[in-house]
């Protein structure tokens, strides 16, 4: 179980100002700016949960992850993970967590992947039989058999990410931190990685905490979302609750032949080209089926598509709502 209570973290950053004279002045007396990276952050995550941790750049996501991993010490507050305080019992704590930094590799560049795995086995003092079971299982789950003998440098980004995730699971951690695991991956690899994370969570009951900017990750993976902005936890709930915060409006894309339909109350045209209309619909005023039948009565419709607000737009709207 992960429990954070009133975690605060401030950084002192030297102010930098333009201009030569000021740069010289800064050599002798520096002005500092206090940045509140985290402001009374509290949450609890139970064993086996899968949590998406989202927020704009610089909101404090990485700082929180680093505190939970034992890399950073907060100014004050309580953080207990399986009964341990990460920064006080670093070695004991990290034995039970796995960390994947999407932008950095933990594999050796020039040697076959399996050699890196063997080294990790020794670093974590993994028992040989446990290592073998884990390796076999991960090889099958992630389809690694072809990749293990290949040096990391000749893997594609997607293949590498699969190996990275496997590498951080070799010691059977109870908690897995994934920092932007799908960054830069193509569509196929993204889906593969997501499926795999799901499987791990379901089969091994590993707690997964995931930061991402890709809302499809969140939609595909997590039931619970933590939204952080300017160092504060703004929202803790599931996707449906998140959706409540955004408007219910629908977008209708209509293709028709002949005369353009007239638009009634509740619909607004956002774009009109010949034969094509993009209409924004407010379902509280006019239901979707009502709107379509109205349009169909007036014109010969070739194609109609209805879309809700994408989660991307939803999050953008949320950021705006909280002005972060």
């Amino acid at each position: 179980m992960i429990k954070l209570e009133n975690i605060n973290k401030t950084f002192r950053v030297a102010k930098r100002q333009g201009g030569f004279a000021r740069a010289v002045k800064a050599l002798f007396s520096r002005e500092y700016e206090i940045i509140h990276a985290l402001n009374n952050v509290s949450f609890t995550i139970n064993d086996g949960e899968m949590v998406g941790y989202i927020g704009p750049n610089g909101a404090g996501k990485s700082t929180t992850i680093k505190i939970m991993c034992g890399i950073l010490t907060p100014d004050n507050g309580i953080c207990e993970i399986d009964g341990r305080t990460p920064w006080l019992e670093r070695v004991a704590h990290v034995q039970h967590i796995g960390v994947v930094f999407g932008q950095r590799s933990q594999l050796w560049w020039d040697v076959p992947v399996v050699d890196s795995f063997e080294l990790i086995k020794d670093i974590y003092k993994v028992d040989s039989s446990l290592y073998q079971t884990n390796l076999d299982e991960l090889t099958e789950l992630l389809d690694l058999s072809e990749l293990l003998k290949t040096p990391t440098r000749s893997l594609s980004l997607g293949q590498r990410m699969r190996c990275e995730i496997a590498a951080s699971l070799l010691h059977s951690p109870k908690i897995l931190f994934l920092d932007e695991p799908t960054i830069g991956l193509d569509a196929v690899s993204k889906i593969a990685v997501r499926q795999f994370i799901k499987k791990i969570n379901a089969e091994r009951k590993t707690t997964v905490i995931l930061t991402t900017h890709d809302m499809q990750d969140i939609e595909a993976l997590t039931e619970r979302i933590l939204l952080i902005g300017k160092g504060k936890i703004l929202l803790d709930g599931n996707l449906a609750e998140l959706k409540k915060h955004s408007s219910e409006r629908k977008t209708l894309i209509v293709e028709y032949t002949g005369k353009a339909p007239t638009i009634s109350e509740g619909m607004t045209v956002s774009e009109a080209k010949d034969g094509r209309l993009i209409i924004v619909l407010d379902p509280t005023q006019l239901s979707v089926s009502e709107a379509i039948s109205q349009l169909a009565a007036q014109s010969d419709l070739i194609d109609v598509s209805v879309t809700g607000v994408s989660s991307e737009e939803m999050v953008a709207a949320l950021y705006e709502e909280y002005s972060i």
């Binding site: 991993c69 670093r90 990290v94 930094f101 950095r104 933990q106 670093i123 974590y124």
Partner: peptide, 11 residues
């Protein structure tokens, strides 16, 4: 950031 990696290892 390799140093962060060192800090999340039990050695």
């Amino acid at each position: 950031g390799e140093f962060d990696r060192a800090l999340v290892r039990p050695r």
